[in-house]
Design a protein around this nucleic acid. Sequence first.
DNA 1: TAGATTGTTAATCGATTAACAATC
DNA 2: TAGATTGTTAATCGATTAACAATC
Lengths: 215, 215
Amino acid sequence: MKTNATVSKQTLRRLPVYLHYLNFIKNDAANISATGIAEFFDINDVQVRKDLAVVSGSGRPKTGYVVAELIAQIEEFLGSRTETDAILVGAGNLGRALMSYNGFAEYGISISAAFDKSDGVCGTTVNGKPVLPYDGIEEYCAHNDIQMGIITVPVGEAQSVCDRLTGCGVRAVWNFAPTILRVAPGVLVENENLASSLAILSRHLREGESGGEKN
Amino acid sequence: MKTNATVSKQTLRRLPVYLHYLNFIKNDAANISATGIAEFFDINDVQVRKDLAVVSGSGRPKTGYVVAELIAQIEEFLGSRTETDAILVGAGNLGRALMSYNGFAEYGISISAAFDKSDGVCGTTVNGKPVLPYDGIEEYCAHNDIQMGIITVPVGEAQSVCDRLTGCGVRAVWNFAPTILRVAPGVLVENENLASSLAILSRHLREGESGGEKN
DNA sequence: TAGATTGTTAATCGATTAACAATC
DNA sequence: TAGATTGTTAATCGATTAACAATC
């Protein structure tokens, strides 16, 4: 495993996808080739091999990779095996949906609490997790060593919430507000920009007739 | 406006972000320079200018762009002004959250109905939109000329749901299942892969100490 | 052995950034 | 006019793909 090499974001995006597939086939196949994975997803086989080289490097000519080993190596690399607590700010529809979703556990992330400005939702629980008032953010982060924050507030509040979280020591921000957040070096922001995805799809429908575009 | 040029996905992702900002400032500023937008978002000014050239080309040296014009041009380009009906398949937590979210209207998309396999949710409504049984997908798509589908089912069902939708004439698929979907040419899949985003954030936290990475 | 498959080095492709002339 | 700003052409950067030697 290349521990110090810089791993591209694209590779990092594909690894969880491979992991899912490997878990899917693990009972039926002991070995898998990069070629096989590439064929399944209809992508380039060299790309798969390069991606896997980041976490493994243990493939063998002719037989490929040992599925169980590969799963363990990707999980280890992604950190799926160490539990990370995250807090969520903005317990609206989207925020509560994320709190209700238990699938993040598969990747080692657990939303331990949410914070909201409105008295209406504060004091309630969603999927067993408390929704607390803004006031408590600083203390909660300090006591629980929170390093990841999820922002599901409206655009207008996103930057100030982000500043507040990073001020509390948060170094990874998952931003669902359709805006670009400015952060200090060392803090990573990952934008889940639903508007941008919609724009791409909507545009595709409109340019439709001039067609012929692949995928 | 360059109507026939191929627009990069990256540009398409940034345009809605600019649009949001322009709407935010439109009451306070009549003009805006690409330089100003770039500074606000802390990105390269030439990039902003190239992005805007795709929709506008009407910037003037010294004064920049007319905010109101630019808003109209981006909206026109993105199709925010033509209403597109979409259906959603999989009315679980995430699916219902998307149905409850009214922000998509800003980009001209409306979820008109959802479909679910389980009898438990069928027959209910979410945010005024009906949840219907799988059986009705084909008829509903045909009657309402549905071109966009949103997939919020578990991974195992995603490909078959996708096949079914594209079989009904859907040409734009918004996929929330953490898997790669194979589709015929002419169909665009946009993956909203929450697992991949988490992987990137989680990895950042783990490599933390070797730090120094920007943004 | 022959052939499937790996892993690496080189070539290509696409997107970002730098340099600069045009212009209001 | 001088300077801010645009838009374009060229250079750079990063990621994908092709070519190929190594190996089980």
